[in-house]
């Protein structure tokens, strides 16, 4: 019940770190991994997750890359990190399954959104602004409770769809 109550207290607050933008926590990462298993047609196995960062997000990307070193397992899915600096988005997203936007990019970036969509990549951010603007497919927060928001238009553009049960349990805009 404790978890249930914590989850029930979803609010709009963001996870603010010392930086002036939302940061991806390891708990967020675990949620991303499990969410990947609910993409339509998903099979168990490895997923390449691009960590897209700008200068402000370099440290965060390094930390996540270290946390995912050797593969980050979330049940049936193992996330393999790929560091992608902003300058290399066009090439860095090829073959990726998901992309996490970090640093100043967490609020969204039109260029990344377009490139990810054309590559069929699920874009994820811990900043709700990103999904609300349609520049991410998914934004999430894990504290104080789990909140997952998916932008249908962005998902459609990226040809990403989720299973029924998952779709009915998240916020869709």
């Amino acid at each position: 019940m404790r978890n249930a109550i914590a989850a029930s207290l979803a609010v709009f607050s963001f996870v603010w770190g010392e930086a002036a933008f939302a940061q991806m926590s390891e708990r967020d990462l675990a949620i991303v991994g499990r969410a990947l298993s609910f993409i339509e047609g998903s099979q168990s196995g490895e997923r390449v997750v691009a960590l897209i960062y700008d200068d402000a997000g370099q440290a965060e990307a390094d930390a996540l890359n270290a946390a995912m070193s050797g593969g980050y397992s979330a049940r049936d899915i193992t996330m393999v990190p790929r560091m992608v600096p902003l300058s290399d988005v066009s090439g860095g997203l090829a073959g990726a399954d998901a992309a996490i936007l970090l640093g100043g990019l967490s609020a969204g970036d039109a260029g990344i959104s377009s490139t990810a969509a054309s590559n069929g990549v699920l874009t994820v951010s811990s900043d709700m602004v990103c999904v609300q603007s349609g520049q991410c497919v998914m934004s999430l927060q894990s504290n104080p409770s789990v909140r997952i928001v998916v932008n249908e238009s962005a998902a459609s553009s990226a040809s990403v769809s989720f299973t029924s049960a998952f779709s009915m349990m998240i916020e869709r805009i």
Binding site: N3, A4, A7, I31, R75, F166
Partner: peptide, 8 residues
Amino acid sequence: VMSELFGE
């Protein structure tokens, strides 16, 4: 998986 994902 759902319970782990949503924490409840």
